[in-house]
């Protein structure tokens, strides 16, 4: 989101604090001292953050209450995350290739991979979190993952989609 704050000490902190208050995660803060869109005596600040939808509406309320002007709220990206569990011979079937097939799409990426050292006589189990810009991207990534798993004889356990 792009904010307009007063060019005074403490104002940036005042704008950022509500984000953590509502459970958001700040990824980047970009100061824009020279911006055509902001009025004199104010600063433009671009903030990239991860936040739930309910958190976002609360954040907007808090920012407005704190005298911060919201100039723009940008598109959501890589905000959809799904966990999968993979079971199979993950190492011997080139795990980095498996991850690459998702990462190379541009619209989805493997955000987290947790592997368990297998118990005796059991194949390897891993949890993979895939994140994507959109539901569509996530579903495409899932298709790629399913195809890869099929080729490499990996079992994927998918989450049950709940009604929104």
């Amino acid at each position: 989101m792009k904010l307009e704050i007063k060019d005074m000490p403490g104002q940036l902190v005042a704008a950022l604090r509500p984000i953590s208050d509502v459970g958001g995660n700040i990824i980047a803060v970009i100061h824009q001292h020279e911006s055509a869109t902001v009025r004199t005596g104010t600063l433009g600040v671009q903030i990239v953050l991860e936040i739930s939808e309910s958190g976002l509406s609360e954040l907007i309320r808090l920012l407005k209450a704190g005298g911060v002007t919201i100039l723009r709220i940008g598109e959501e990206r890589m905000l959809i995350r799904r966990s999968f569990i993979l079971i199979g011979h993950l190492m011997h079937t080139d795990l980095s290739d498996t991850v690459d097939r998702i990462d190379s799409t541009g619209f989805a990426e493997v955000a987290e991979l947790t592997m368990m050292m297998p118990a005796i006589n059991e194949p390897t189990s891993a949890k993979m979190i895939i994140k994507s810009e959109s539901m569509e991207g996530l579903l495409k990534a899932l298709e790629i993952l399913r195809k890869t798993a099929d080729q490499k004889e990996i079992l994927i356990i998918e989450p049950l989609e709940e009604k929104q």
Binding site: S83, M116, E122, P123, S125, K127, L155
Partner: peptide, 21 residues
Amino acid sequence: TGIDLLTSDALALAEREEHTI
């Protein structure tokens, strides 16, 4: 797909985050 290929590790991974299979 059946459950005969499931591992106890897979269950443990799910359970870590208050999930299950």
